[in-house]
Amino acid sequence: MADMDEQPRTPSSRTPEDPTPGPDRRQVLKGAAVIGGLAALAVGGGIYGVRQLTDGSSGSPPSAPESAGTVPPSLDRLAAGVVSGGPGKDGIPAIGKPRFLDADHARFLSDDQPVFGLEARGGERPCAYPQLVLIWHEIVNDRLNDRPLTVTYCPLAGTAIAFTGPPDKAALTFGTTGNLVNSNLLMYDRQTDSTWPQLTGTAITGGRKGQTLATTPLLWTTWKQWRSAHPRTRVLSTDTGYLRDYGSDPYGSYTRHSGYYVEGGPVFPVLARDRSRRLADKDVVLGLRRGAHHLAISKKRIEREGSVRAEVGGRPVRVVWDRELDTARLATDSRAPVEAFDAMWFAWYAFYPDTQVLP
């Protein structure tokens, strides 16, 4: 991971790698008054749909298939459920050559700005990936301990996940397809053109179909709390090589808890809906995954109780509220090989309708 000492710069021109001159779906959402009404969504000068967006009362987007019951969607069913998100392939440009700042030089970050924190591993310094950068790119192709690391963020599903590669440890790099499945980022790898829903990390088409990417934990916290806990952290710079309005969020605001992040249901169709309404669509859960076993625990519950014990696939786990970072995480005494990450309830359920739930 490359370091920088200078103040981050906003590029004054578009790079050749940026193929889409028109607005992407974030700009569309910002300008279309998406929450609670009809929106004509334009991308690159063309209209790609007029959708009735949910206002929280109907609880279901248009064209959303009925719940799959207790059976998780198969790879083929997920592939059949892919829809256009607006921009074309690589229209949302992944960052391929990330640059980093020391904490003291990251003056573009306010204390309450969300960051996705990667704790120190194998001699590497901790690193923060700001949400205000990832909102415009969704994928960062980085390296950790001289191995590929792909940091991903899907604002529609509220998921930030870091991947370390497929089972054969091939050095894959990823881009955005411009498509979605279950209102979640659909990635592709540039080596085989296989496609991978971000939330599952399992390829649904291509030569790597059925393979699952290994993950490494990211912690969703704020810049103030991350920097206090990790003063030597490095920070992904806004000097990305692309002209973007870093600092604005067309979906709303996590810091002021507004807009898409709290209102209505999913904008795009999903394959399964929780009709029992155990949680609201946009409620954030800590999703736990161990093989074919899945558990969702309300993040509010973890904060309220401080510690929650549960089982995933017959293995005991404990999740805690990290008060230093103000977020939920697996406890260090949890020995089970379990993945854990934040997700909006509707997205977790759409992929895992057989999930256990602790609301």
Rank of each mutant, 00 (worst) to 15 (best):
G314Q: 06
A64S: 15
Q211P: 05
E119K: 06
Q225I: 05
Q211K: 11
A272E: 08
T205N: 02
E324K: 14
A340N: 12
P16K: 12
E119A: 13
T221D: 15
E6C: 09
L172R: 01
P197C: 08
G49Y: 04
G44D: 15
V50W: 13
Y260I: 07
L185D: 03
I302Y: 04
W136E: 01
T212W: 03
Y188H: 08
D342N: 13
D239E: 15
A280E: 14
K299Q: 13
D146L: 13
Y48T: 09
T327V: 09
G252S: 04
T222P: 00
Q191H: 06
K89S: 13
R301E: 13
A157D: 14
V115D: 01
P130C: 05
W345P: 00
G85K: 07
I135W: 02
E339W: 03
V133C: 01
R77E: 15
L101G: 00
L172Q: 00
G117R: 02
M1F: 03
T164K: 03
D245Y: 10
G123V: 09
P217K: 07
S57G: 15
G175N: 09
Y349L: 09
A296E: 06
H137S: 04
S276P: 13
T173A: 02
A292M: 11
R232V: 11
A94V: 02
G207N: 06
L118W: 00
T200D: 06
W348D: 10
P353M: 04
I35A: 10
Y352I: 03
V82Y: 00
T205W: 04
E324T: 13
R147I: 03
T10N: 08
L75P: 07
E66V: 06
V235C: 06
T221Q: 11
A94M: 03
A32C: 07
V312Q: 02
S58K: 15
T159V: 15
